[in-house]
Amino acid sequence: MLGIAAAVLFFIAFLINAADLSTNEVFASVNVMLIGLTLLALHVAGVGSGLQARPRRR
């Protein structure tokens, strides 16, 4: 799920950069891209992947 959110944020950052839109500093292209990279790093680290199966103890 975080990987999809990262892809959407990368696309938004691309559109802001390609269309040369003037936004405030919070929604600048680089800031949106950095949020996307953060979400991608969390996805790769396994955050948000759901519950993990525990091995049974005997």
Rank of each mutant, 00 (worst) to 15 (best):
A28C: 13
G46N: 07
S22Y: 13
P55Y: 01
A5C: 09
V30A: 06
Q52R: 15
G50A: 03
V26G: 06
G46T: 05
R54C: 14
Q52H: 14
R54L: 15
A7S: 05
V47H: 04
A13D: 00
V26E: 11
A19H: 11
F11R: 03
R54Q: 12
L40N: 06
V30Y: 04
L37G: 14
V32C: 13
L39G: 09
R57W: 02
A19D: 09
L39C: 06
L9Q: 09
F27P: 00
M33F: 14
M33Y: 15
L34R: 14
M33A: 15
R56Q: 15
L40V: 09
I35E: 02
N24W: 08
G3R: 01
A53H: 04
F10P: 00
A19C: 12
A28Q: 13
I12M: 08
A53E: 11
D20P: 09
L42G: 11
L42R: 10
L2P: 00
S22L: 10
F10K: 00
H43W: 13
V26Q: 11
T38K: 11
A28E: 14
R57P: 15
V26F: 06
R56W: 14
A19M: 13
G46Q: 03
A53C: 07
L9P: 12
I12R: 03
V30L: 07
V47C: 07
F11T: 02
L37V: 12
I4Y: 01
A13V: 00
A5R: 09
T38G: 13
A41D: 05
L2Q: 07
I4A: 04
F11G: 04
R57G: 09
I4H: 03
A53Q: 08
N24A: 15
